[in-house]
């Protein structure tokens, strides 16, 4: 809770300053409505030991979000062999909000499948980096994007530690950021699980309140220490995410970034944000002082050496 207060304080301070300076009257900053760290939001647990790579979740997502027909049909599993630039596995893109990738860790005699989508961070980097406040975190936990105000700077794509947001580069007129919205408008809002969760035939995906889902994840690890590594990915990573993962192998081997740290991304920016009011308040006095100092010297010189000075000036 402490962090939430500090963050909101910082935001409203900046908002107030900017608005007071440039508009003359304060308006409630929309950034205040952010409600991360509530632990009231929902979450989804992905049990990687149960995923069989059937791609039902991909198909369900495509249907639910009215996305364009995929290049490769959802029952074609040769897609797991495709590689994109740099030998990397598939990622989310324009028209594809979730993907399943196949990994072959050497300690297992079978492949492991990993579902990938927006993790719906508790304190989202995309939200904090957006200069038109296009992102909101709903109380239910979904990170929403408002295409009506998006300018298209793509700073959210720079900021997202999971490389989630995609951009519809192909559209000349109204390109927008495209990413998973946890089916918020059609399902989550009404307490229903996202379409992918409902479609999963192997119960690899478990939906519930984030607190309960986290407890459930830890319980499952406790009951089956022989199956799982003792780590819930997303519990603490970049301040915590709504989507959580448990895995039978080291997360590093199946494409998870283990170097993200536990700080929300905005914490890396706070040191700079703190210098802003300092510069704004200290510089005017400091440089006005310099001006005085420089002019005083000038005046003294003028008194002592009036004639020579005038000559050099002309």
């Amino acid at each position: 809770m402490k962090s939430l207060n500090r963050r909101n304080f910082l935001k409203s301070g900046l908002a107030g300053g900017a608005l007071a300076t440039f508009l003359g009257r304060e308006k409630p900053a929309q950034a205040r409505e952010f409600s991360g760290y509530t632990n009231k939001g929902t979450g989804v647990l992905v049990d990687l030991s149960r995923c069989v790579g059937c791609r039902s979740c991909e198909a369900a997502c495509n249907r639910e979000q009215n996305l364009p027909e995929p290049d490769v049909p959802f029952d074609d599993f040769s897609i797991f062999d495709t590689e994109r630039h740099g030998g990397l596995k598939r990622r989310t893109s324009e028209g594809v909000f979730t993907v399943v990738n196949r990994y072959n860790p050497e300690e297992l005699d079978h492949p492991l499948f990993r579902k990938f989508q927006c993790n719906h961070c508790e304190e989202p980097a995309c939200l904090t980096s957006c200069f038109v406040n296009a992102y909101t975190k709903t109380p239910e936990g979904a990170v929403m994007y408002n295409p009506k105000v998006c300018v298209g700077c793509r700073n959210c794509m720079i900021a997202c530690p999971f490389y989630v947001p995609a951009y519809s580069y192909s559209k000349p007129l109204n390109p927008i950021v495209e990413k998973c919205i946890m089916c918020y408008p059609t399902r989550l809002k009404f307490g229903k699980p996202p379409a992918c969760v409902e479609a999963c035939p192997t119960e690899a995906l478990t939906f519930g309140s984030r607190v309960n889902v986290l407890k459930f994840a830890k319980e499952r690890i406790r009951q089956h220490p022989e199956i799982f590594v003792d780590h819930v990915y997303g519990e603490k990573e970049v301040g915590g995410t709504a989507w959580l993962y448990i895995s039978p192998v080291d997360f590093k081997k199946i494409g998870f970034d283990m170097n993200l740290g536990h700080q929300p991304i905005i914490n890396y920016v706070k040191s700079f944000l703190a210098t802003v009011p300092m510069v704004l308040t200290i510089w005017p006095a400091l440089f006005a002082g310099f001006y005085r100092l420089a002019n005083r010297k000038d005046g003294l010189k003028k008194d002592n050496n009036e004639g020579a000075r005038e000559e050099s000036q002309s």
């Binding site: 963050r7 910082l10 908002a15 608005l19 950034a31 038109v132 296009a134 700073n155």
Partner: peptide
């Protein structure tokens, strides 16, 4: 960012 929607905590 100047008139329609403000994200004042963003560096941009």
């Amino acid at each position: 960012p100047m008139i329609v929607s403000f994200g004042p905590a963003a560096v941009l």
